[in-house]
Amino acid sequence: MKSVSLFLALGLGAAIVAASSCGGKKPAQTAPTPNADSAAAADRARQDSIDAANRAAQDEAERVRRQREADSLAALSRASEDVRNTLAAMIHFDLDKSNVRSDDMGSLDQKVAILQANPDLRIRIGGHCDERGSDEYNLALGNRRAQSAKQYLVSHGIDAGRIETQSFGEERPLVDGHDESAWSQNRRAEFEVVSGGDNLHRP
């Protein structure tokens, strides 16, 4: 958008410069003593103003065209952004558990639809734990959580090759806190785009 408006500003500036330059010549050319030179000058001036008008019209058409293009791009990227946000929505787990909770199945179903609508899309699932468990065991538990989320997507028809998994144990807490609110937010799986996510289509 920034580059488009910059272009428009330059175009307008050029038009203003062109207009003011003919305006400055006109009074001299309407003098009552015509001669060959002045007739030629008048012709030139007329042609200049026609050219200027044509240029302005062209500039305007170009501006409108670009604006339309930008608008539709913005609309597309807005849609893509919505899809991306839906895809990135985290799911959560119960303490010491790695099974997908029923309240997260809707969220995973949406991801299934997005993955189906965007066949080039590849994602990575990161499994995370809260700080209450054992540091080292949490690496295994985080792995289970990521696998569990992946398994759900695969069982709903997504090719397993499109989904990578990672475990972060308790090493990347989303919320720094030592209460149930923080813990329950930290027991999660995160979804990120690996590739094919530049222009996501709505399912």
Binding site: E136, L139, A140, N143, R144, Q147, K150, T165, Q166, S167
Partner: peptide, 25 residues
């Protein structure tokens, strides 16, 4: 993969460890 919790055997010749893969750990 995700390799963690290394442990040496007493004779120092073997390293035991955990490996987390898609199959689990």
């Amino acid at each position: 993969a995700l390799d963690f919790t290394p442990a040496f055997s007493p004779d120092g010749q073997t390293l035991a460890f955990s490996r987390a893969t898609e199959e689990g750990t």
